[in-house]
Simulated scan of single mutants.
Amino acid sequence: MCPVIDDRVLLLAPRATDTVRRLTETATARGLRAVTAEGWRAPDGPRDAGRTHLYGGPLLADRVAGELDVAALQPPADWLARLPVALTGRRVEAVTLAQARRLRRPAFVKPPTDKLFPARIHPDGSRLPGPDAFDDDLPVLVSDIVRFDREYRLFVLDGAVHVGSRYSVGPRLDPARLAQDPYAAEVRAFAAELLAAADGSLPSAAVVDVGLLDEGGWAVVEANPAWASGGYACDPGKVLDVVLRAAGPKAETAPEDLPFVRAAGRATGSP
């Protein structure tokens, strides 16, 4: 567990979620000052620059990270597409929205990090948002359609699973601590294989979701920034460990993490 951090702030998005509540309680117990953003702005302004961590999603990061000197780390937009099919369980391509609109086959389409439009199965690319809604060069992920029987959230720190939670069984939300799940050993074994193969391609603190395919076999679902991910049934103290590293003072960011710092308003590319 990380030590108590004096004179630090955890800035939280103005959303009343279970993860926000649990992180607020945990951060306060650890000695941080937990503050809820007002109108997606930093309530105390520049005086908290250089000692703030944040949790709350891309909108909050884009509004306050620059002002407060926060480095918000996130996986590259094309990370999933660069993995081998043996780990993804399906073909995944990183393309522009303009290219995705030209699809003539069913596919699952999603923005990599920012939830700018719903991630879902499309019969083709004709019903994707048009150029009046989003720029043609917006990065999106296009993948073959697969179904997951069970899905798990893993908070990763320094290349290893720090804490995990099941979050769904079939189409049903069903959170449970990883240790309580009958597939826990298989999840950890697959995660170890994945993280070894992905060495250097993720920031030191991130979230990776994995799942058991309907037809059998384990596969990566996606990767996301820890500062924008729900904790489900994870130990909030361990979630906080990862969040603090994933979005904290820029001056304390390790050199190897600098390529993963989010540029305001967009996901970063490959490091």
Results as ranks from 00 to 15, higher is better:
94 A>L: 10
228 A>R: 08
148 F>W: 10
209 D>I: 01
212 L>H: 10
195 L>K: 07
188 R>Q: 09
81 A>G: 02
104 R>C: 11
104 R>Q: 15
63 R>H: 08
97 L>R: 04
250 K>P: 00
20 V>C: 08
48 D>Q: 03
111 P>Q: 13
78 D>L: 13
93 E>M: 11
61 A>K: 07
149 D>C: 04
202 L>E: 10
46 P>G: 04
193 E>R: 15
60 L>Q: 11
266 R>C: 15
13 A>G: 04
99 Q>T: 09
47 R>S: 04
197 A>M: 11
16 A>N: 15
36 T>A: 13
122 H>D: 02
90 R>I: 00
210 V>Y: 06
252 E>A: 15
81 A>E: 06
252 E>W: 09
243 V>W: 04
236 P>H: 03
45 G>Y: 04
193 E>I: 02
187 V>Y: 07
208 V>S: 02
117 F>H: 05
179 A>L: 08
69 D>H: 14
122 H>Y: 15
206 A>V: 15
217 G>Q: 04
149 D>M: 13
241 D>E: 14
148 F>A: 07
248 G>N: 05
64 V>H: 09
88 T>Q: 03
98 A>R: 12
265 G>Q: 06
142 V>K: 12
18 D>S: 13
50 G>F: 08
126 S>V: 09
207 V>C: 13
147 R>C: 01
256 E>P: 00
20 V>E: 06
196 A>T: 10
180 Q>H: 08
268 T>F: 06
135 D>E: 12
200 G>H: 08
125 G>I: 04
69 D>K: 05
128 L>M: 08
262 R>S: 13
61 A>D: 03
267 A>I: 01
19 T>I: 01
238 K>V: 00
195 L>M: 03
68 L>A: 03
148 F>D: 05
147 R>W: 03
29 A>F: 00
36 T>L: 13
187 V>G: 05
238 K>C: 02
3 P>E: 03
260 F>Y: 14
179 A>V: 07
210 V>N: 06
203 P>F: 13
153 R>E: 06
220 V>E: 06
126 S>W: 10
131 P>R: 06
76 P>D: 08
266 R>N: 03
43 P>R: 07
35 V>D: 05
173 L>K: 13
266 R>F: 15
100 A>S: 00
154 L>A: 04
51 R>P: 02
150 R>E: 14
4 V>A: 11
79 W>C: 04
4 V>N: 10
8 R>K: 02
43 P>E: 07
85 V>I: 06
183 Y>C: 14
84 P>T: 03
129 P>N: 06
172 R>L: 10
7 D>N: 14
38 E>F: 01
180 Q>T: 01
216 G>T: 01
52 T>A: 12
58 P>V: 06
234 C>R: 14
95 V>C: 14
5 I>R: 15
112 P>W: 15
237 G>R: 06
169 V>Q: 15
96 T>I: 05
264 A>L: 12
140 V>N: 09
137 D>N: 12
188 R>K: 07
29 A>R: 14
187 V>N: 02
174 D>W: 11
73 L>F: 11
242 V>K: 06
234 C>Y: 07
40 W>I: 00
253 T>C: 11
145 I>L: 15
63 R>L: 00
193 E>V: 10
221 V>D: 12
7 D>E: 13
200 G>F: 06
192 A>L: 07
2 C>E: 12
46 P>A: 12
99 Q>N: 05
52 T>P: 07
173 L>H: 08
56 G>R: 09
112 P>G: 10
139 P>N: 07
212 L>W: 11
269 G>H: 03
256 E>D: 14
28 T>A: 10
